[in-house]
Design a protein around this nucleic acid. Structure first.
Length: 579
RNA sequence: GCCUUUGUAGCUCAGCAGGCAGAGCACCUCCAUGGUAAGGAGGGGGUCAUCGGUUCGAUUCCGAUCAAAGGCUCCA
């Protein structure tokens, strides 16, 4: 497996060089930046005399195929810095890269056919190792040189490349599937949510069916939290500048905050986070070590400024609801609390059908608050929790926030894509800033530990991922409509309504379709709406008090007594199973 | 915010060397409708994203703005 990945990496990197050569043939004045292999393919950044178009991509592909069929070797050569600077004297980006290399670094260049590039490698041995029918140029994008918006914008060409045409085809199929599952498309088709440009970008409107799902998710979430020893809070949406000054948000987070509104000549800010409010509640009375730990949760809606170019459906918005909680505890309790949060989180993901989860542990950055001992204790408890759960993890050395280390969880969806959702963050900053204290056993004032955590992350993003994970065909317990009653003809509309009422009585979300369509159209509509169960009713069913069940998967079970169907669907709901 | 592309009916999309705006689906009405993925007929619906410019005349050409898509950076 590792061998295969290594091989793919060489191929993709080589395709990237071949593309660069093709682009150079088309535009002899091209300046080259960088062109690495990436997941599923490769890219290369160029500075070009004009914007390239999708038609250009086809031409570039053709030239690439010609180059590949020339059976050119990839030849590696080691040169010294002076030679390198001379070789790339017309390539300012390469010069910059060379000058950035450490003095003792070995500088290598790779040449195939007419093209030589500064490159560490590795590459395929020969262009004949590249299958000319196993790659495709996909998209053109702008990208800053070295990812810095102060630098010039280059043109990036993305391509996908594989060992065989068959793998390419299946990747293109996968891309089609990604498009089909796009939550923005499904959100409209299934009537779940909308956004309104005329009323503001990045703000979500939840339609009845989307809102229904949201209440199901939130009800479940709250119940689980109460069961796990959390209390629920409500806090305001705005706060005076004193609050945000004290918390430090005005100093360190203001680029994400909206301008203040003036109320009685005081500046009020809409909240980008919930924590300061929870802290004020903590400070309303003296806290004893006996009160700790406090686990305070809130589905708190926050607003953050996001640059217009980054907004994306439900996944990146300007107003969202965090499934937030703050755990305030003694240093001695911290390890157990972290363990419990992680366990809780994994259970939550399991309930919604996600089981592949990876942890990222971010440790102390150079600039930080809090003493080393605190950091170490926190890091150790995070690490221990990950180990106890047996999670796969990566360590992001120095990647923590200045106020504390954290674990982020990335969950994998049905298409194998990773989404960063859960975050568990220590905070050594706010307890200090707000002077939070508790009275310990020895009757001295001590500083509590504080942990922020969001399990689903944000309800909006979670919903977007949920939609894509299930392609809109939600498990029965989440489906906004669990059953559609479809009479075969108007003569059975009365019975259809009767069955609908019986199911409603049993708390099943059901709709009887007694409209003007013919039965076939009703089945098609229910199918397109991804309703789990269709109950088809005609004379046979009415006279026996039965229903005939068609699932959205096309399975069929005829002549089921209504009670039996209720018991059946109740079990599906109870066990959180799919159809 | 920046780069590229895009914006015509609720949705998917035609159209136009500058000269009265089109289809399918959806919606409404009527007719029809007894068995597992679209019954039929008729009808309503558009300041061609917005604002400005060029022109006798702009949905079409030009500019700005807004929004969307794919990226860059950042993040729940």
């Amino acid at each position: 497996m590792a061998d295969k990945e290594e091989k793919l990496l060489r191929l993709r990197h080589s395709f990237s060089h071949v593309m660069a050569e093709a682009v150079l043939q088309m535009f002899p004045s091209t300046k080259f930046a960088i062109g690495p292999a990436i997941e599923h393919g490769f890219y290369y950044d160029f500075d070009l005399p004009r914007s390239i178009t999708p038609e250009d991509l086809e031409k570039i592909e053709q030239i690439m195929k010609t180059i590949i069929s020339g059976n050119h070797a990839f030849i590696r050569k080691v040169i010294n810095k002076k030679e390198a600077l001379d070789l790339f004297k017309d390539q300012p980006f390469k010069i910059e890269l060379i000058q950035g290399l450490p003095e003792d670094e070995e500088i290598s260049v790779y040449t195939q056919n007419t093209f030589t590039d500064l490159c560490r490698g590795p590459h395929a041995e020969n262009t004949k190792d590249l299958n000319p029918c196993a790659f495709k140029l996909l998209t053109i994008a702008g990208a800053y040189w070295r990812g810095d918006e102060k630098n010039p914008m280059l043109q990036r060409i993305y391509g996908t490349a594989w060992e065989t045409p068959k793998e390419l085809r299946s990747h293109l199929e996968w891309l089609k599937e990604v498009e089909k599952r796009d939550h923005r498309r499904l959100g409209r088709d299934l009537d779940l949510f909308s956004t309104h440009e005329e009323a503001g970008a990045g703000l979500i409107y939840w339609h009845p069916k989307g809102a229904r799902i949201r209440t199901i998710v939130e009800d479940f979430w709250r119940r689980e939290h109460f069961r796990c020893g959390y209390e629920y809070l409500y806090s305001p949406h705005i706060g005076k500048s004193w609050l945000w000054q004290t918390s430090g948000h005005l100093d360190f987070y203001s680029e994400n905050m909206y301008s203040p509104m003036s109320i009685d000549e005081q500046d009020y800010y809409i909240k980008p986070m919930n924590c300061p409010f929870h802290i004020l509640m903590y400070k309303t009375r003296m806290r004893s070590y006996r009160d700790l730990p406090l686990r305070w949760a809130e589905l708190g809606t926050v607003y953050r400024y996001e640059r217009s170019g980054v907004l994306h459906g439900l996944l990146r918005v300007r107003g969202f609801t965090q499934d937030d909680a703050h755990i305030i505890c003694t240093p001695a309790q911290i390890e157990g609390e972290i363990l419990e949060v992680l366990r809780f989180s994994l259970n939550m993901w399991k309930a919604f059908g996600f089981t592949e989860i990876k942890a990222y542990l971010a440790t102390k950055p150079e600039k930080s608050v809090g003493d080393d001992e605190q950091w170490e204790k926190a890091r150790a408890s995070l690490k221990k929790a990950i180990d106890t759960q047996g999670l796969a993890y990566d360590i992001d050395e120095g990647g923590g926030a200045f106020y504390g280390p954290k674990i982020d969880l990335k969950i994998k969806d049905a298409l194998g894509r990773e989404w960063q959702m859960t975050t568990i963050q220590f905070d050594f900053n706010l307890p200090e800033r707000f002077d939070m204290t508790f009275i310990d056993q020895d009757n001295t004032e001590k500083r509590p530990y504080m942990v922020h955590r969001a399990l689903l992350g944000s309800i909006e993003r979670f919903f977007g991922v949920l939609v894509e994970h299930y392609a809109g065909a939600f498990p029965v317990w989440i489906s906004p409509v669990q059953a559609a009653v479809i009479p075969v003809a108007p003569a059975f509309y009365d019975y259809a309504v009767k069955v609908e009422n019986i199911l409603k009585e049993a708390d099943i979300r059901v709709v009887a379709d007694v409209g003007n369509d013919r039965m076939n159209a009703k089945i098609r509509n229910a199918q397109n709406q991804k309703i789990p169960y269709m109950l088809i009713l005609g004379e046979k069913e009415e006279s026996a008090g039965h229903v005939s069940v068609r699932t959205r998967k096309g399975e069929q079970k005829n002549g089921l007594p209504v009670d039996e169907f209720i018991a059946f669907i109740k079990e599906k709901i109870e066990k959180k199973e799919n159809v």
